[in-house]
Amino acid sequence: MQTTLLIEQILNGVQFGVMLFLMAAGLTLIFGVMGVINLAHGSLYMLGAFACAAVATATGSFWLGLMASLAAAAAAGAIVELLVIRRLYDRDHLDQVLATFALILIFSEGTRWLFGSFPLYLNIPPVLSGAVDLPAGARYQLYRLAIILVGIAVAIGLYLLISKTRLGMRIRAGQSDREMIAALGVDIRTLYTVVFALGAALAGLAGAMVGALQSVQVGMGEPVLILAFVVIVIGGIGSIKGALVGAALVGLVDTLGRFLLPQFFALFLGPSQGTTVGAALASMLIYIVMALILAVRPRGLFAAST
């Protein structure tokens, strides 16, 4: 019993980590290439979830919804880049924080205006409903397993994109030396818009996929955004590899901490007190891990050279 539960929790941790990776990869790419900290990334996540839920409800197809979420998030990302972010490249981080904080307010209230204050619900597509049998007698939700696979596919896709394609070469050049790629004759403005839209699409994808597991509502993006910050701080800003490792670490530590710590403290303090202490500590656990990692490596595990 305990083993099967543990396996399930580990998979939950991996699934959570995958979702964080989709968020963190976009954030770290945008920061690495353009030097912009984008708080509104959580809004793009929310937008993906809303687009998916709305289109899926209207058409009855989750898959159309998923397409819509990618398109909506990418389009919103491109528009935001063209209208706002573009003016922030030469500004300090404070201006970037403020402007993208303002974008959160605009996106959140705008979404509330369009969809009302009640949460939307998104159903798991029929093909992916149900559970699969795993070794050791464990069973696991097929849909969550699919999310894990999508995440792995995206990670591989990003790796190939960045290491093997022309766009990837430009992204890498942009990370190391902005003037150099201008000298190479790359249209840097278009490159920035494309990278921003790509990051936005990843966030939208994450939002859409998670939308089927929880309610779709305004404000769903920011807690995930802040966790994604923790991920890239741990992994090292600008590093996709760091985002992957950090996301797995945060996903697993958070999920397993919430599962194991209350049980652990219940052994010493009794069930009621122990659960309380364990749960409170579990809610702080990833931040403690972050602090410990930073104490040893202030620039994260895979700090890109700056």
Partner: peptide, 18 residues
């Protein structure tokens, strides 16, 4: 404060969230 710039922003945010 061992870090600076964007790291500092994100870490202070994370500690408050904790």
């Amino acid at each position: 404060l061992r870090t600076s710039g964007v790291y500092f922003i994100m870490i202070t945010l994370a500690f408050a969230q904790m």
